[in-house]
Design a binder for these strands. Structure first.
Lengths: 202, 202, 202, 202
DNA sequence: GATGAATGAGTATTCATTCAT
DNA sequence: TATGAATGAATACTCATTCAT
């Protein structure tokens, strides 16, 4: 693929990401995507077989870029404090979710879109939104072996309790645009409560 | 409205709930809704001003029925054990979410739909999906006063940590249809970890 | 027909006349007509076979009432002055036209509506909008025999020239709502010019 | 716009003019217009924002072409005979009216359509159907200055009397399709009567 | 590669008309 | 007679996709 085509493809993916996020899959029009990318509608079909294919490309690109921080986590075991590491992670998950959640919601509209997501997952290194759970579990297990987490803690469950916090926060904040409430105030407090349940007592 | 009209309206709301859940708002067609309700398309517009109005009715009806269990929670303070009460609650939230989450996702497609949701919220006693947080916080505060929860716990944060668990689980399980993973195995474990962080030590 | 039915029918015709005049035939809805008449939609079909039939009834009722003045004209020959009689007539034609023109425009939308009009014409004493021409011609011929109009005047042509004045004025004034111009200022002047062309020289 | 698009637009305007004339605005369907233009329905919306916009284009195109003859009239003052000039003009007005009158009737159906007409008027050089009055008045005044029309004639009223003739004739002939009567026989006679009222006596 | 005009299947909504009550 | 819920055909408009240039 030529340099120019590569750039066009990139512009299309970026434009599409914005439109899918704003409008969802069904209400995103190829016209608006093309306009924002500064190309004609026909050009979309030179780079992607159809709208779903374009969505898959968007989804893969967003996942690929963002999960890096998350997958790198297990290597941090033993450094800094567990609390510092987890708070950093929770931020990272939240960042990813903020981008991916709207796309996931967009996809939930269209059953056939699952196909695009699955192929996107295999294309990206980490996986779907469920992905963070695994590296997080591995990290906790590593800390457990290092003696910084109680031995009687089920690390998979703990990972889930932790992961649920930023996950829920993002969805809640998206709704908050309408309701006015925000979950940000409670996130750190919630993490600390989980920490008290899993850390070695002082 | 006559008996006859009342029944028809009910059938329409039920049919619409199913179609909105399956297809999202944008891809739900009035044709399919009417077909499933066993009436003609035109009949929809005798009972609702437009598709959005119908969606609002669906949303309100689903919320109204289900939030009862959740809002009744604070009264349980002091009865049974805290763990039993919370596990019961977590089930209830999960039940509500299973119905409401797809509708919420459906709504996220259409910015103007927030209007329908807001009016639906004021119509129902309890509130939107963000609603459970408040009664849950009240319950924990009551238990704190009764001495069953540590005094140094921030009940709002604890409520958030608990609420996040079924909330995340439902979304995750919806995706799991495609990925195969399920969050059900970790839910109780996750709740127990939070509990260890907030309960009075034995 | 019972007293009550007669009243209902009347209310329907009056309501329909208003709605047809405001909206034209195609955009007049049976719902609005029924609402204004204070009855249910179904009731319309108890008194008229369909919407066109109702339009025909409206058209006939408006024509019947108003053409009386016009048809009585020939009898005035020899009384007062020709100018007075004609100015009176021109007013009368304008009054009729103001009511009938919108209905005629409404009808021009629907080819099949001609049927309704024709049957309406035979029902009413006078005839359609073209009607005034004949009595006007007869009046002028009578005045001609009486020596108040030149012998070399073709009365049919003169009738047409006179009739055209209020006829055009009404249509022009209807458009004037949008344009702001009014034809009223020129009507009497126009009649006088025609009069100078047909009256016996002093 | 490309050559191809230009042609299509033209075909659409022509087809729409025919359908609007036949059926009026409300009963003209986009389907029929597209069919007659030999394009698909969707194509309409590439060239016009909606049905009203298309109507405006039709109205403007019909007015623009035809008013040329009428606006050129004042320049004829002093040439030929007044009678020849006016008979020529009356023909021209009738030609314009034959095309515009049905569109005007079509528009009277839809209040919002006045907007389209007004913008169409400003687009065309001369103005709406009320337009001919002004150039006609100017012509008569010029002839008056040249001594071919009596000094005591009010030219605006005379213009109105003359204009009313073809104006009424067109509407009458449209109805005549149903009634069988025609106004054509009386037009020249009517003009001559007005002429006798305004010309200098021999 | 890129364009944008054209397509045509699809969708929400309207409305005259029917009919059980 | 009157009602008003139900009908279903009709209609303006949208939008992903194709294809000649």
């Amino acid at each position: 693929m030529s340099q120019r085509g590569d750039t066009t493809k990139h512009q299309l993916v970026d434009a599409a990401a914005a439109v899918f996020t704003e409008r969802g899959f069904a209400r995103a029009t190829t016209r608006e995507i093309a306009e924002r990318a500064g190309v004609s509608e026909g050009t979309i079909y030179r780079h992607f077989t159809d709208k779903r294919d374009l969505f898959g490309a968007v989804f893969a690109s967003r996942n690929a870029a963002d999960f890096e921080a998350i997958t790198a986590l297990p290597a941090l075991a033993g450094t800094k404090t567990v609390r510092e590491n987890l708070l950093f992670l929770i931020e990272a998950i939240q960042d990813v979710e903020r981008e991916v959640a709207p796309l996931r919601a967009a996809a939930s509209t269209d059953a056939d879109l699952a196909v695009a997501l699955v192929s996107a997952r295999s294309a990206s290194a980490a996986g779907t939104a469920v992905g963070p759970l695994e590296p997080l579990t591995h990290y906790l297990e590593a800390e457990q072996r290092l003696g910084r987490i109680r031995v009687d803690v089920d690390c998979a469950s703990a990972a889930f309790a932790l992961f649920a916090i930023p996950f829920a926060a993002v969805t809640m904040n998206r709704l908050a645009r309408a309701t006015g409430a925000s979950a940000d105030n409670y996130m750190v407090g919630a993490v600390d409560i989980v920490l008290r349940g899993i850390l070695m007592p002082d």
